[in-house]
């Protein structure tokens, strides 16, 4: 194994990192918005909306992401109507096709996370807010959504990691992100193991940092679960609690 080559491979692959992150963040962000709408559709209690959201989930979770990418990138360009439409500049570009496919895909998975979060909001909190005179959109914005986000954050962090991994599929439609650059470097040098070890290490580093960031955010959002910093309050120990009882 040629160790000097590792450094060279790292320098070749690092320019792919911004593309990977762009793909991951843009699609996860856009996907979260669609996911919120899908989750609300499922919880709306309006039958047609619920059915639509269920069908959406079935299609996008039941078929491989790569098929969805191909369908959008190769499939849609077959129709002259699409080629003459205003969306053509977007659909002609592999980058935006990848973004669209990744967004639609993550929206399906994310909507289940958000739905779980929305369902987990305790009734008491909603009642308390109503007692304070909040209702409708204000209740949703101030009470339900923040609590749902806090509850769903760990699971959404997992989804973000899955999306970082999924961006590697964009290399198949000619996007030069980390995997794309790695595949090209392999075809130039034939040093398969070295290149993929470096590429794998870059992905691991990205995912490690993202996991830590999400954990940090989770820590910030849950101050009520932390131990109190001031030791002035004497917490009842087992002995004192027993005395009182």
């Amino acid at each position: 194994m040629d160790f000097a080559f590792f450094w060279e491979a790292l320098l070749t692959l690092l320019p792919g990192v911004p593309k990977t992150l762009q793909l991951a963040f843009l699609s996860t962000g856009l996907g979260a918005i669609i996911a919120l709408f899908l989750a609300m559709m499922r919880l709306s209690g309006i039958k047609p909306l619920d059915w639509f959201a269920r069908a959406y989930l079935f299609v996008f979770r039941g078929s491989p992401l790569l098929v969805q990418i191909f369908l959008i990138y190769y499939g849609l360009s077959q129709f002259p109507e699409v080629r003459n439409s205003i969306f053509w500049p977007l659909l002609r570009d592999p980058f935006w096709c990848a973004i669209i496919a990744l967004t639609l895909n993550t929206a399906a998975y994310g909507s289940e996370v958000i739905r779980g979060g929305l369902l987990s909001v305790p009734h008491g909190q909603v009642e308390a807010a109503k007692a304070c005179g909040m209702s409708g959109f204000r209740l949703f914005r101030r009470i339900i959504l923040p609590l749902a986000i806090r509850q769903g954050l760990p699971a959404y962090g997992t989804e973000l990691i899955l999306m970082v991994k999924a961006t590697s599929l964009a290399s198949i439609i000619t996007i030069m992100e980390i995997t794309g650059l790695a595949a090209r470097l392999v075809s130039e040098t034939y040093l398969v193991i070295e290149v993929f070890v470096v590429a794998g290490a870059i992905y691991l580093a990205i995912n490690f940092i993202l996991t830590r960031l999400v954990q940090g955010l989770e820590y910030r959002l849950t101050p009520h679960l932390r131990e109190r910093p001031d030791a002035g309050i004497v917490m009842p120990t087992r002995e004192t609690a027993g005395e009182r009882a």
């Binding site: 970082v164 590697s168 290399s171 995997t179 590429a199 992905y203």
Partner: peptide
């Protein structure tokens, strides 16, 4: 488990396909 859940599946497939032949 940490490594395999942190890197893309496509990379593993490439690694086995090209690396296996090598």
């Amino acid at each position: 488990t940490t490594v395999l859940r942190g890197i893309p599946d496509l990379l593993v497939i490439y690694l086995f396909y090209f690396g296996g032949s090598a």
